[in-house]
Design a protein around this nucleic acid. Structure first.
Lengths: 215, 215
DNA sequence: AATTAAATTTAGACAAAACTAAAAATATTT
DNA sequence: AAATATTTTTAGTTTTGTCTAAATTTAATT
């Protein structure tokens, strides 16, 4: 598998978690910053290789084999992210770009040794689950901050949007993985949420609340 | 720079250490397992980019810029090798292939963090020097085992041939980086060398002796 | 010095992965 | 249901890095 093919597989995997009944050509093009016609070409090739099932105009889905391959790529990506944060002191907003490259290094021995070296982490620095060697994923129950009722104390366990911009904004508010968040007040009119983090009161917009997973 | 261009630069660098007055097209083709015509094409492109000076039929050499680039690639390669051996328990014969891939990950921050994490190693697992951030290389004085006189005790500090086959052969003889080697007898007729390693007598062929650096 | 051999370059072609522009299929409106 | 809009596919190019085969230059021999 080429790097390009791997990137397609990965994107199809992520999109199929949201739309399990078939992923759109355009959606893939959007994620990969390429053109729909290029996607069509690649889908044919991937179908040839039996990693996706593809019918003209009907979108694609992963085959069992394709799913396993995709999980391996995600596994590599997330393990490297853990490495960068835990061992090389990167912050959670810096790791994605580099992991995009590292994820394509394919040695099984490398990735399993890395996994052991990191003590078999179940989640990456953004709270996303890391598939194990067999592709099994430990599901974590989590809810969006926006869905939590007033008064409760919850813990930040992940982000939906893991863009550097969002993560840096969270840093500015002293919110990070594991932060305790107490919901003080929810304003129904403009959906602002007043919370307490680090013994300080903070106002969070809805845009933040719908992108923050808590438990 | 593409991966392919980096591979050419790296090979030209290694070859220019042996033939500083210009590297042959054929030599490059041999190292990269490609054809001379492909090399010619690439040399033109690299000359365009000012990383090599190239004159038809005269071979190539690196420009100052090209030399720095090449050293960066070598630096990355060797740092990853140290990482694999020191942190992930790889053996010295397993690391080259994987480092061939890892060397193309280009984040400066990544490589400098890795360097610090590994405590700024000066040599890789085969005894080859690791350029620092500025491209400076710490030279180590070393001689081939074949050049040492009878009677002396020396220490293995590197290998000239770092192929897996050779390294595994050395492992079988219990010779590794840092091994003390006492030269007991040199046979002039067939150039076999009797040495003592690990309190055991071993006979080494000339092929071994001309590929083992000692101090 | 002429001839042969070896190394190198040119010319033309190919595969991968992208693109543009146009055509076809599906969805959505009116 | 017809018209329009959107999505997807096809057809034909482009770029990168490779190849083969032929031509050219340099090196080695006789």
């Amino acid at each position: 598998m080429t790097i390009s093919e791997e990137n397609y597989l990965k994107v199809i995997y992520h999109l199929s978690l949201v739309s399990p009944k078939g992923v759109n050509t355009n959606a893939i093009a959007g994620m990969l910053d390429t053109k729909a016609s290029s996607v069509t070409d690649m889908l044919k090739k991937l179908a040839e290789k039996d990693v996706v099932t593809y019918k003209k105009y009907q979108g694609v889905s992963l085959t069992n084999n394709g799913l396993l391959q995709a999980k391996k790529i995600v596994r590599r990506h997330r393990l490297w992210e853990v490495f960068l944060v835990e061992k090389l002191q990167f912050t959670w907003d810096e790791v994605h770009e580099i992991a995009e490259e590292l994820e394509h290094i394919k040695s099984e021995k490398l990735i399993n040794s890395l996994d052991a070296y990191l003590d078999f982490p179940a989640f990456d620095p953004h709270g996303d689950p890391i598939p194990n060697e067999k592709g099994e994923i430990k599901k974590q129950e989590k809810q969006l901050l926006s869905e939590m009722p007033t008064g409760v104390v919850c813990k930040c366990v992940g982000v939906k949007d893991s863009s550097a911009d969002f993560l840096q904004y969270l840093d500015k508010q002293k919110i990070t993985l594991g932060s305790e968040i107490k919901i003080l007040e929810k304003e129904t009119f403009d959906e602002l949420i007043k919370v307490e983090v680090d013994a300080k009161e903070v106002i969070l917009s809805n845009k933040i609340a719908v992108n923050l997973y808590v438990q």
